[in-house]
């Protein structure tokens, strides 16, 4: 029973990170109909930067966020303005996939080039610590990672809900033509949307670096599940993505007990196919997307 409970807690913690990252992917798709393959490559890049920062300075990897978040935001804006916006609207979805895919390859290759293919892991004084929670044994780093993800997701939600920029962004997602008509500069909004998306990757990467072993090709293990999440949640819906992330994260964690880690991952792909077969617009998109 405690094993089950432990799995539930771990699933929720993992789901939180998935939710944050899937929110980023949803932003790109929402503002520009772009399937951003390089999202998880930036995630790993940020994890490497956190690791490098800690090994060089000996400071806590969380401090690297001060640099990586603004850096990634700017990188996102530049990527949208300099690369994505050059593509013809008619073929945008397909060509943006290739373009972001090529960015992912370059990042993976450069990581291998600079840091080599060796597996890396951050050693922290509190790496081995864990908390007892109703009989479940939870590593402190996982809790920190979850906290980071939850706080960021909350902040993202507030930005979208409460600020004028957030309103413009939501309008751009829901109806770009109408948004343009009421005077929203959708190009600039799309750039900032991209920036925000990449900022989630910066935060997610740091959270990931806290308790995972990282290597350059790790991003392929993340992009598949994340893609599945945003389809199940309904492309373009952030709450949908968050719910799907939680459910699938939980499912993965629970399935690890009977099936082992490798087979448990297949839940994402099964959910992806089931969704496309039964409800191609996604499960949580429709109603929630309008409210958000």
């Amino acid at each position: 029973m405690s094993l089950f409970f432990q799995s539930v807690v771990l699933g929720v913690l993992l789901g939180g990170l998935y939710a944050l990252l899937a929110a980023g992917l949803t932003l790109y798709f929402g503002v520009m109909r772009v399937v951003m393959i390089a999202h998880s490559a930036f995630l790993i890049l940020s994890a490497y930067l956190a690791w490098w920062f800690t090994t060089e300075t000996g400071l806590d990897p969380l401090l690297s966020l001060v640099v990586t978040v603004p850096l990634f935001f700017v990188a996102g804006v530049l990527m949208q303005r300099l690369l994505i916006s050059r593509l013809r609207p008619a073929t945008l979805t397909m060509m943006s996939v290739l373009l972001t895919f090529s960015v992912a390859l370059v990042i993976e290759g450069m990581l291998g080039f600079v840091f080599s293919g060796t597996q890396r892991r951050i050693r922290l004084p509190y790496s081995g610590d864990s908390l007892e929670l109703f009989g479940a044994n939870i590593a402190v780093v996982k809790l920190i990672a979850f906290g980071l993800a939850a706080v960021s997701l909350g902040a993202l939600f507030l930005i979208l809900k409460k600020t004028q920029f957030g309103q413009a962004l939501r309008a751009t997602i829901q109806h770009p033509d109408a948004a343009r008509l009421i005077g929203i500069n959708t190009d600039r909004i799309a750039g900032y949307g991209f920036g925000l998306g990449l900022a989630t990757a910066a935060i997610g990467g740091t959270a990931l670096a806290l308790d995972s072993t990282i290597y350059p090709s790790l991003h392929w293990h993340w992009i598949g599940p994340l893609m599945a999440i945003i389809v199940v949640g309904g492309l373009g819906s952030i709450p949908g993505a968050a719910i799907a992330a939680m459910l699938l994260g939980l499912g993965q964690s629970l399935l690890q007990i009977p099936l082992g880690t490798t087979w448990a991952q297949t839940i994402f792909y099964l959910a992806l196919f089931a969704t496309l077969m039964v409800r191609p617009q996604g499960f949580f998109g429709g109603r929630l997307a309008q409210r958000f």
Binding site: S102, V106, M110, L111, G112, P216
Partner: peptide, 13 residues
């Protein structure tokens, strides 16, 4: 080497 990932990515882009 990792270099051919970079080359491949750049060429595709």
């Amino acid at each position: 080497t990792q270099f051919h990932l970079v080359a491949m990515g750049l060429l595709l882009g």
